[in-house]
Amino acid sequence: MPTPAAPPDPPGHQPSTGLRADAERNRESILAAARRLYATEGLGVSMASVAREAGVGKATLSRRFATREALITAVFSDRMDGYAMAVTGALADPDPWHGFTGYIQAVCAMQAADRGFADVLTMTFPAAKALEDRRTEAYDGFVELIARAKATGHLREDFTPEDLVILLMANAGVIAATGDDAPDTWRRLVGHMLRSYAAPGTAIPPLAHAPTPTTLYRAMIRLGHPRPRS
């Protein structure tokens, strides 16, 4: 007896593999759009703006990333990995003071490369466990790095881990204010701060050139006429 033929697929039917492929394409489009917007505008970008940039509906965005924290975690997980690895590299330096200064410069450079990441390092996201675990790992390593640098006599005894948070907040502000017109200004800030952290007589990294009056003036004008948020 012949086997009955399977009923035809309804109009518009897609195989499950096709649905999975579409879902993955949507996810990658959302992540790429969020990376672009966060990198140039910071974390103040709305979820609706991300959906528009990705070319998907808000419902599609919500299915892939139910919360802002979930999207931020997915976008910045690799950068937080790099943040934690930077501490590991600094601890491996046989010269703790050199490891300390190199770590400060590396982390501030990460901020300068991505405004969204500059924001991530100055905020906390209790619901984003993966991000916060990496932040804790980096913090614990930095505490050890501080102790080693102080033991050499090169890092001031009154330096605390909170001083790094203050620096990252200040650096994020400088990057946001001058990134378009004087993008290397953050290097000058970091150089001055490293000098303030050094104990008397310690060799310090060279100070970067100051921005020109013209570029700072342009940055000040831009601050007075901010671009509208997406």
Rank of each mutant, 00 (worst) to 15 (best):
T88G: 13
G89H: 14
G89T: 09
A90C: 09
D93K: 15
D93Y: 14
D95V: 11
D95S: 14
W97T: 03
G99K: 07
F100Q: 04
F100L: 14
G102N: 15
Y103A: 01
I104E: 01
Q105K: 13
Q105N: 13
A106P: 00
V107Y: 01
V107G: 03
C108F: 00
A109D: 04
A112H: 10
D114E: 05
R115Q: 04
G116M: 04
A118I: 02
L121V: 06
T122K: 06
T124R: 15
P126D: 07
A128K: 03
A130M: 11
A130K: 11
E132M: 15
D133N: 13
R135K: 14
T136R: 15
E137D: 14
Y139N: 08
D140T: 09
D140Q: 15
G141L: 07
G141A: 12
G141H: 09
F142Q: 06
V143E: 10
V143F: 11
E144I: 05
E144S: 13
E144Y: 09
I146Y: 03
A149Y: 00
A149Q: 01
T152Y: 11
T152Q: 09
G153D: 07
H154A: 10
H154V: 00
L155G: 04
R156Q: 12
R156C: 08
E157I: 07
E157V: 08
P161F: 15
E162G: 13
E162N: 08
D163E: 11
L164P: 00
L164E: 05
V165Q: 07
V165R: 12
V165F: 13
I166S: 10
L167N: 03
L167I: 06
L167K: 03
L168F: 12
A170D: 05
A170M: 14
A170S: 10
